[in-house]
Design a protein around this nucleic acid. Structure first.
Length: 930
RNA sequence: GGGCCGGUGGUUCAGUCUGGUAUGAAUGCCUGACUUGCACUCAGGAGGUCGGGGGUUCAAAUCCCCCCCGGUCCA
């Protein structure tokens, strides 16, 4: 990564306060300090620049709980003209590029940082719960330097070209004042380390502040946009600070780990549940002091770091491991269950895609940890405690308690199921390996079991050990998994035609959207601004709706001097609407009349409003975790994908349908309005973003009474009553955790009902049963069919047995000859070339007398078939069915094969069948006489 | 969005690579015998559209294509 020059960091504050800039000999980074004798940067890095010196020795005036620290931070900046902003959700629904809020600045990207929308306040201060799953492997072993869920304090200032709020110097001064005056840390103990920050598509220089070994915050001066790996200056310079509120609490308490500081009594309870006896606190603190050495993604692997630490504290590695592992696991449980409660409380349904996968990943990790600790039964207790604990600050958690518990139990069952399946799988694999005398599960099998079957290696090892096999889990196991996924080559995306369009319309003004002003407008007049490739027409205004938000584009006509051109597609390219036409294109600057296919559009409007209603109904029936996952509207039928943790029952579907139709009957007014992003979010919350992230400064809000509110650009009805009738046609599972509802609206809905009825009537006709007895009759018919099937097989067997009895009788087409004491039975089955019949018959004969060879043949007029079966005695005499068939079937122009005792073959040259049979006889006799 | 694994008696699976009898295995079920203290034992029996459709072939559970369903990992 490129570095910024010294000037970017040397703020006047450093000069005023006699700071010196130095280069750390261990990690190679520059840092600023007031202490001229300071050698290293003083951060507890994996490179070992310094240990933590705040453990049992906090540098602050007093000890703060997390809540106290949060409040201290917020009010400090509030007193200095910052407006306090409420935290955003941890699931970043307003963004299309990421799933989770992992920093406070995420709340203001990209609209505020790119100048599209104003910030809710400027400057502002916020404490934002953040989730970072990339640090999941480090959470625990680093004693809380890494957490999957933490609170980030940020004081942010957005500097516009014409309005400067504050920039680097003031930021550092605020920070320094907070840490020294407010918290009481000695000024010379605060080190500022230079770094380059890149994230969320933005970049800038940053200063990290270090106190007694711990990096407590990062002050980022965001001023670039990253385009093709190049830094491009942004018009807006953003002060993006990230104060680790959890780390600050840890620093102030001087306890062994950040988990002690954040969870206090909750952590004790988990320790107690896990039955961990008295923890040697002195040892724990000794280890904590050097825990900065641990970092799983950097050069030092877990084992290496462990060895170093064991050496420092003067212990054997196994001993240290035995001491630390359960504690680390408890740390991770405390962290992950909090994280899980936050994610689930915002309605994320665990699944195998997108943010749902992250929830599942987290759940399974927690569950595995609990398994190792032997307390899976305590899952609900721990989660309950977390919900109670954090509801004091984040009240939405307790409102979702029941749904969270329900989702947990579904997930638990699923995981138990996976493990159970895995147990059987490992057992079978183990048995196979044992027959090959392999007593260790190969690494390849381990990775395969994890990747394809979701079986974590330590669980495989456990199962394998039960089978008396060993399993060595390589240190880089998860890297191997990553490798497996690297091997696949990604498809190259096709060049989109819009790209050339984008260029062509780039200098045009925004098209006036008439369909937004009056959603019922059918005709309009407009000026032709541009014609591209004599196929695309751009007008100054239009009421043709471009495809977006799952609503297809309008179709219709453009008329000029009585000449009609058909509009086949409409797309929005940036801010310009482009009509794709089929026919003679109007000239530029001419005036045209536009007419949309109103019947189609009106159906689409009905379907679109109905989608909002069904979504609201589903949420009411299934719970607050229901979010729109995707949607496609059509004139005849539409579909809505929603997140839900189990398969919908017909009852639930009917409930949703009934509720939706009630909303239709209530004739609810549908209001659309444009409002600023901040105002809309404040009024309606983030539920607005059902259809995903919505761009722009102003957003369009579609409000269906109290039923549903969404940010949506689509065309809607004035009243729900216009829908008439909604019929959910069927539901299917698109993905784990995603259910699809397919429905029709109005007359097509009626048609759907009628179609079903037609099918029922037809069925009733076929079965000649009255409608109300259809189910019973169908059951009976299927049962009878099964019975008949069984009967047929029984009969084939019986016939075979009977036919074998009359061996040597006067059956037509049968010849029996005795060769060398072996009976050769030749039989023409005529048109019955059913293998089953021949096989059964032959089986029966040979069962009775092993000194038999059967040569059965027949033809149905298209194919000829020969089958040979030999009894044991015959085989001993030299009979070989496979050989006979191979020679004979060539004659009839086909092929065949089999084993010594049984073979079959055939061909299409049926006229040569007898010749082939003679050949078979000849070969057989030769074999027997040899 | 992408990758991987799977769908065969009621259940759990073998067989698929290398096409050729589902004489399939275990368990559960039914009948009988033997037992009557804890997966009883023994004998016999019933139970299959091999997920669906198309193709290749004399022949497909097996090979090829499409679809459906389940599981799982990753972004």
């Amino acid at each position: 990564m490129k570095k910024f020059p010294k000037e970017e960091y040397s703020v006047p504050f450093f000069k005023d306060e006699d700071y010196v800039r130095k280069l750390c000999p261990k990690c190679g980074e520059y840092f600023w300090t007031q202490n001229p004798d300071q050698k290293t940067c003083g951060e507890a890095t994996p490179e070992g620049c310094a240990p933590y010196t705040f453990i049992n020795n906090p540098p602050t005036r007093k000890s703060y709980s997390l809540r106290e620290m949060r409040e201290t931070f917020l009010s400090f900046f509030e007193k200095r003209e910052h407006i306090r902003i409420k935290p955003y959700p941890v699931v970043a629904r307003w963004r299309g590029d990421i799933y989770l809020t992992h920093a406070s600045i995420i709340d203001f990207q990209p609209y505020v940082t790119e100048g599209i929308a104003p910030p809710p306040a400027n400057p502002l201060v916020i404490v934002q719960p953040c989730i970072r799953l990339v640090d999941i492997a480090n959470t625990g072993p680093t004693f809380g330097r890494h957490l999957t869920v933490f609170e980030m304090g940020g004081h942010h200032a957005f500097n516009y070209p014409d309005k400067e709020v504050y920039w680097k110097d003031q930021t550092v001064r605020y920070h320094h004042e907070f840490i020294t005056k407010e918290l009481g840390v000695k000024s010379e103990e605060v080190v500022y380390k230079e770094d380059v920050w890149v994230g969320g598509g933005n970049a800038g220089p940053d200063l990290e502040s270090i106190v007694r070994g711990l990096e407590v915050d990062t002050l980022v001066f965001m001023q670039f946009k990253v385009v093709n790996n190049e830094f491009v200056k942004l018009p807006i310079r953003t002060v993006d600070t990230g104060y680790g509120i959890d780390r600050y609490a840890w620093l102030s308490q001087g306890v062994p780990s950040c988990f002690h500081a954040v969870y206090s009594s909750l952590l004790d309870k988990i320790v107690e549940m896990a039955g961990i006896d008295e923890i040697d606190n002195d040892l724990l603190m000794k280890v904590a002091e050097v825990s900065g050495l641990v970092s799983l993604d950097k050069t030092a692997s877990r084992l290496e770091a462990r060895r170093k630490i064991a050496e420092i504290v003067g212990m054997k590695m196994d001993e240290l491991d035995g001491f630390l592992l359960p504690i680390e696991n408890v740390f991770a449980v405390a962290d992950h269950t909090k994280c899980l409660s936050f994610i689930l409380s915002e309605g994320v349904v665990p699944s195998n895609i997108q943010e749902g996968y992250l929830a599942r990943l987290l759940f399974r990790r927690v569950y595995r940890l609990l398994r190792i600790l032997g307390i899976t039964d305590k899952l609900y207790d721990v989660m309950d405690m977390q919900i109670d604990f954090w509801s004091k600050d984040y009240s939405h958690l307790k409102e979702m308690r029941n749904e969270i518990m329900e989702i947990l139990s579904v997930e638990e069952k699923k995981f138990e199921e996976t493990i159970k399946r895995g147990g059987g799988l490992v057992k079978r694999i183990a048995e196979e390996l044992k027959t090959k005398n392999i007593l260790e599960i190969p690494v390849k099998t381990l990775t395969e079991l994890y990747d394809s079957h979701g079986l974590p290696p330590e669980i495989v090892r456990q199962f394998a050990e039960e089978e008396g096999l060993e399993a060595e889990i390589p240190e880089n196991f998860y890297a191997l998994i990553a490798e497996r996924h690297m091997q696949t080559t990604g498809k190259v995306e096709d060049a989109r035609p819009e790209e050339s369009l984008e260029k062509a319309v780039s200098n045009l003004l925004e098209t006036e959207q008439l369909y937004c002003q009056d959603q019922y407008m059918r005709e309009f007049e407009a000026k032709v601004l541009k014609v591209i490739d004599s196929e695309y027409v751009v007008l100054d205004k239009t009421c043709f709706y471009p495809e977006s938000g799952g609503q297809p584009a309008d179709t219709g006509n453009l008329v000029l001097d009585g000449n009609k051109v058909e509009v086949v597609d409409v797309q929005k390219v940036g801010r310009v609407i482009v009509h794709k036409v089929d026919g003679t294109v109007p000239k530029e600057d001419s005036r045209v009349k536009g007419m949309i296919d109103w019947e189609r559009r009106y159906s689409l409007m009905k379907n679109h409003t109905a989608t909002h209603i069904v979504n609201g109904a589903a949420r009411r029936v299934l719970g607050q975790h229901v979010w729109q996952f995707g949607t496609q509207k059509g004139a005849n039928r539409s579909r809505l994908d929603i997140s839900h943790y189990r398969r919908l029952t017909l009852k639930e579907v009917h409930k949703i349908e009934t509720l939706a139709n009630q909303a239709v009957l209530q004739n609810i007014a549908v209001e659309t309005s444009w409002m600023s992003r901040n105002e809309a979010e404040k009024l309606y919350g983030f539920r607005l973003y059902q259809g995903g992230a919505v761009p722009g400064k102003e957003i369009r809000v579609v409000k269906t009474g109290d039923w549903d509110v969404e940010a949506c650009a689509g065309t809607h009805l004035k009243n729900t009553g216009e829908i008439g009738f909604i019929k959910i046609i069927h539901s299917e599972r698109v993905q784990d955790g995603v259910e699809r509802l397919v429905y029709s609206v109005g007359i097509p809905a009626l048609k759907a009902v009628q179609e079903n009825e037609e099918k029922l009537w037809r069925l009733s006709e076929i079965l000649s049963a009255p409608l109300e007895k259809l189910d019973k009759t169908a059951e009976k018919v299927v049962a009878e069919l099964k019975e008949a099937n069984a009967e047929k097989r029984k009969l084939i067997k019986e016939i075979a047995e009977w036919e074998s009895l009359v061996l040597g009788g006067r059956r037509e087409g049968e010849e029996i000859e005795e060769v060398e004491g072996i009976k050769v039975v030749m039989r023409d089955f005529k048109e019955v070339i059913d293998v089953d019949r021949m096989v059964q018959t032959a089986n029966q004969m040979i069962k009775r007398d092993e000194a038999i060879v059967t040569v059965f043949y027949g033809t149905d007029g298209k194919n000829a078939r020969i089958m040979v079966m030999a009894g044991k005695t015959a085989i001993e005499k030299g009979a070989n069915a496979g050989e006979i068939i191979r020679e004979a079937s060539v004659i009839i122009g086909g092929g065949g094969g089999g084993k010594v005792n049984f073979a079959q073959g055939g061909g299409t040259q049926i006229e040569k069948l007898l010749e082939a049979v003679e050949k078979a006889e000849e070969v057989l006799k030769k074999q027997l006489r040899h």
